[in-house]
Design a protein around this nucleic acid. Structure first.
Lengths: 210, 210
DNA sequence: GTCTATACTTGGATAGAC
DNA sequence: GTCTATCCAAGTATAGAC
C-alpha cells in the first residue's frame, strides 16, 4: 500500500496511465512493455512484476478506462428526458472522448482482442454501455409514439455501435470528421419527432409499458 | 506475367489472399511476414521481394479486399427502392460479410492504422461506402416525408459507422450478436414509416429534389 | 522468381543484486 | 519494489546461390 500524501503515484498506477497514453498515441501494435515502461518512467521489468504480462496490463488498462467512461456516461445520462437532450449529451460526450483519447485506447484493445477471456470482459462493458443508452432512450421517448415502434434495446445497440464506428473513423483524420454535422442532423430530427408526436395516433405511446 | 491456364495462382496473389486469412484469423498483431508466407505456402523472403514491406502487403491486401466489398455493395444497392429493401439487403450483406470474414480483415487494418498515407486510403474507401449507402437511401426515401427531415449524407454516414461498429462487436463473440434482432426491428420500422407516410403533411416529400 | 542463410532489431520474460 | 543483466523467441529485411 502506498503512503498517504505521496508526491509520486505508485508504479502500478503509472503503468496503467502510461498504457493508455501509448495505446492512444501508438496504437495496439506499439503497446509494448518497453515503450509503456519508458512512458511511465520506470523499468521495463516492472510491467511483469506488477502485471505478469503485457496482455494483462492492457486488459487492466482497458477495464479501468472503460469503467471510467461508463461512470461518466451514466452520470451524464441521468440528465436526459427528451430526445433533444439525448443528442446534446451524446455530442458533448463524443467531444470529450475525442479530446481525452480514452475511447481510442479502448477501441485499440477491442479491435485487437483475440482471447475469449478478453472478449468476454469487453462485451460485458459494451453491454453496460448499451444499458445506459437504453435507459436514457427509454426516458427520452416515454411520451412519444416512437416508443411503441422501436425496440429500445435494439435501438440502444444500434446507437452504441454507431458511436464505436464513428470513433474509429474519426481517429483516422479528426479534421475531416463528419460527426458534428451528424449531431446537427440528429438534433433536428429529435426536434421534429417531438413536434410530430401529437399528430400521430394516440395510445400507442403506452404500448411498451408494463 | 503468369502463364494462361496455370494451376497455381501466382505468388503475389497467394500472399494477398494469405494476408487476408491471417488478418481474419489472428488479427493485426498476428499478421507478420513469416505467418503470412507460411499460410501462402511460400518463403518468407518473398513478402519483401513482391511488396517491399509487411506494411505495404497489408495495405495492398486492404485495398483489394475493400474494393471487392465496395463492388458487392454497389451491385446490391442497385436493387433498392424502398426502406424495406434497404434493410433486407443490409442484412444479407452483413451475413455474407460475417461468413467470409472480409470485413474483419478490413477493420483490423483500419483500427491499427497510424500512418497518414494509410489513413488516407482507408478514408477514401469508407467514403465510397458512405456514397453507396447515400445513393440507396436517397432512392429508398424518394417518396417519403423522411427525405425532407433527414440529411441523406449524414444518415448514410451514421449507418456506415453503425455497420463498422457492429462488425467489430460481433467478431468478439458471433454467437451472442444482437445484430439479427436489430435487423428485425429496422425492418419493422421501415414498414411503419412506409405506412405512416401518407398521414404526414404532403409536399414535404419533394423538398430535397432539385 | 524462389530458396537458404543470415544480420540485425525488438520484444517478452526471468534471475538475481540491491 | 526496483534495477541491471541477460536469455530466448520472433520479427524485418537483405545477400547471394540456384
Amino acid at each position: 500500500m502506498p503512503q498517504v500524501g505521496e508526491e509520486k503515484a505508485d508504479t502500478r498506477q503509472r503503468l496503467l496511465d502510461a498504457a493508455v497514453e501509448v495505446l492512444r498515441e501508438e496504437g495496439i501494435t506499439g503497446a509494448t512493455a518497453r515503450r509503456i515502461a519508458a512512458r511511465a518512467g520506470v523499468n521495463q521489468a516492472l510491467v511483469f512484476y506488477h502485471f505478469g504480462s503485457v496482455a494483462n496490463l492492457l486488459l487492466q488498462s482497458f477495464l479501468r478506462t472503460s469503467d471510467g467512461q461508463i461512470a461518466r456516461y451514466r452520470a451524464a445520462a441521468e440528465g436526459v428526458d427528451s430526445l433533444h437532450d439525448l443528442v446534446g449529451i451524446a455530442r458533448r460526450l463524443h467531444d470529450e472522448d475525442l479530446e481525452s483519447g480514452a475511447v481510442t485506447a479502448v477501441t485499440q484493445v477491442m479491435a485487437a482482442a483475440r482471447e475469449p477471456e478478453l472478449s468476454e470482459q469487453i462485451l460485458e462493458r459494451f453491454d453496460q454501455w448499451i444499458g445506459i443508452v437504453e435507459e436514457a432512450l427509454r426516458r427520452a421517448t416515454a411520451d412519444s409514439p416512437l416508443a411503441a415502434a422501436m425496440l429500445v434495446r435494439e435501438a440502444a445497440y444500434a446507437i452504441s455501435s454507431m458511436f464505436l464506428g464513428i470513433e474509429i473513423v474519426t481517429r483516422l483524420d479528426p479534421e475531416r470528421s463528419e460527426a458534428p454535422r451528424l449531431f446537427d442532423m440528429m438534433s433536428n430530427l429529435a426536434t421534429m419527432a417531438e413536434q410530430l408526436a401529437p399528430m400521430l395516433p394516440p395510445g400507442t405511446s403506452d404500448a411498451h409499458r408494463g
